[in-house]
Design a protein around this nucleic acid. Structure first.
Lengths: 113, 113
DNA sequence: TCCATTATTCAATAACTCTTGATATATTGA
DNA sequence: TCAATATATCAAGAGTTATTGAATAATGGA
């Protein structure tokens, strides 16, 4: 993943509706979820929903597949991982403090940053 | 770190000049670097430089400290870590594939995504 | 074929972001 | 105090992004 792809991915995620969409799709797992269900979950209506799902797909973070009348969206974990990996390794040079934050419980709750 | 802080941080990094500034400051380490040096390194002039450094500082990703005539900027690794940690843990639920990409060499070179 | 469902596209508008060049502020040394 | 250095701020303009409501397209069932 090169710099401009990373910027595209970060840009896609730097928006409330889209960040929530990704989170919802992560929970949905490999089965994915149809557009309407995602829209309902994050509270975005019809055209707005398509707009944001398209932005995530353009960035490569999710994929789409028609299934009868519905369009199923799924997280592309390899792409999300590549983006995070770029931040941690390429950008932060594998900094130990940054790496530590990737572990569960590191930055949670009261003690969090 | 809450959702809106994460969005602010992602938004700050989803820009070529600022992503390069952060990378430069990571390399500079704890000593940090003065604004002018950063601007020269990333190729941004005076006002543009201030604009982008301010954006990174507003997002909490870097700190500033006057030192005589210069203003020294430094990466706040805790904040960068918190952002990455949010993506990996809160947003991706600690997904194994995403976590694996945080390790050195995972997504480098030819085999990369 | 007709209708309902599901989702996308389009046009208009509002809001935000980035760049530029000019100006202003803070600090230091002569 | 004056000039030089280092940086920040301001105003205008171009470009981009997000929202809305209406219209369009694709699919499946009566």
């Amino acid at each position: 993943m090169d710099e401009s792809q990373v910027i595209g991915a970060l840009s896609a995620l730097s928006q409330e509706t889209r960040l929530r969409m990704l989170r919802y799709l992560v929970k949905a797992g490999p089965a994915g979820a149809p557009a309407g269900e995602i829209g309902e979950a994050v509270g975005s209506s019809s055209s707005r929903n398509s707009f944001h799902l398209n932005a995530l797909a353009q960035a490569g973070l999710i994929t789409s597949q028609r299934q009868s009348r519905r369009i199923i969206y799924r997280v592309d974990f390899a792409k999300v991982g590549a983006m995070v990996g770029y931040l941690v390794q390429d950008c932060c040079g594998g900094n130990a403090q940054v790496l530590a934050c990737c572990q569960p419980g590191c930055c949670d709750g009261e003690g969090g940053v």
